[in-house]
Design a binder for these strands. Structure first.
Length: 269
DNA sequence: CCTAATGTTTGTGC
DNA sequence: AGCACAAACATTAG
């Protein structure tokens, strides 16, 4: 689930609720705590307050309040993570791995698969060690930057869009949705996308990101490709053609063979 | 039992 | 160097 849009939703959950003093930190599964121990995490946070959380790509960055602190909790949600606000007396979910307790409720880091986890950074350098390799956040990428990026690589465009070191925040669903709207086949070689095509790709990316970030998820709406990923058989919501499925960039991809024609030179066997 | 899952990293080979 | 691909990570659902 968690791509840029979802993490944007978690950022709002965090900023709307994680106010006041942290009264306790319950680590229910030490495996998800990275770069520190459960004890150190708890000791660092207890009695402190968070400043406003920000997002870069799929990371949520929650700094401690206080000008010279430099300490931040960095949360990644892998494929199954989420952040939920709940009352103390609400029964815990079996996958609530870390719980931040406040006077008025609890923030719960829930994650079934525990692929990434929650990191503690004590200063700028530690923060940079985790986030330094990320590319520009997808919401801030200009049209010229995108075109230059595409031109500079001979990669399948979907793989390039999802490469976090190049563009941060786009995942499997967003990439498929954006490419479908831009009418570009996911296996198109990036350097072959120029001029008008790149401008259209950028425009569609901005629309998809704005709407999905506002929703806090990639909307499974009928008018979105994402709303038809799991239909069998799925049909393109734009032209009705049966959707194609296949591996692209190592991930399960969905596209419309009519709206997104095969690039020249690609012949399936 | 087997497969796939919205992510990232690492190794292999062209 | 740059790219594609497979596997691994941990866990559950179908």
């Amino acid at each position: 689930m968690p791509e840029l849009a979802d993490v944007e939703g978690f950022r709002r959950v965090f900023n709307d609720n994680a106010r006041g003093f942290v009264r306790a930190v319950h680590v229910n599964d030490v495996q998800v705590v990275r770069r520190t121990t459960a004890r150190a995490l708890s000791d660092t946070l207890r009695g402190r307050r968070f400043g406003a959380a920000r997002r870069h790509g799929k990371w949520l960055i929650a700094p401690l309040a206080g000008r010279r602190s430099g300490t931040a909790v960095l949360l990644h949600f892998g494929m199954t993570g989420e952040l939920v606000w709940a009352d103390q007396d609400e029964e815990q979910h079996r996958h609530d791995r870390v719980v931040f307790e406040f006077d008025h409720g609890q923030l719960r880091y829930r994650d079934m698969r525990k692929l990434e986890g929650l990191h503690l950074a004590r200063d700028e350098a530690e923060c940079d060690a985790v986030l330094g390799g990320l590319g520009t956040d997808a919401t801030e990428l200009t049209r010229d930057e995108l075109c230059e990026l595409l031109a500079g690589h001979d990669r399948q465009v979907k793989a390039l869009l999802m490469d976090q070191s190049e563009i941060a925040g786009l995942g499997n669903l967003l990439a498929d949705e954006i490419l479908w709207r831009a009418r570009i086949h996911p296996r198109t070689t990036s350097s072959a996308i120029g001029g008008k095509d790149c401008a259209r790709l950028h425009a569609r990316m901005r629309t998809v990101l704005r709407q999905s970030a506002q929703a806090g998820r990639v909307p499974p709406h009928q008018s979105w490709l994402t709303g038809h990923r799991d239909d069998s058989p799925g049909h393109c919501p734009r032209c009705g053609t049966s959707l194609s499925h296949g591996k692209v960039g190592g991930r399960s991809g969905v596209w419309c063979p009519e709206c997104q024609p095969e690039p020249n030179g690609w012949e399936p066997h």
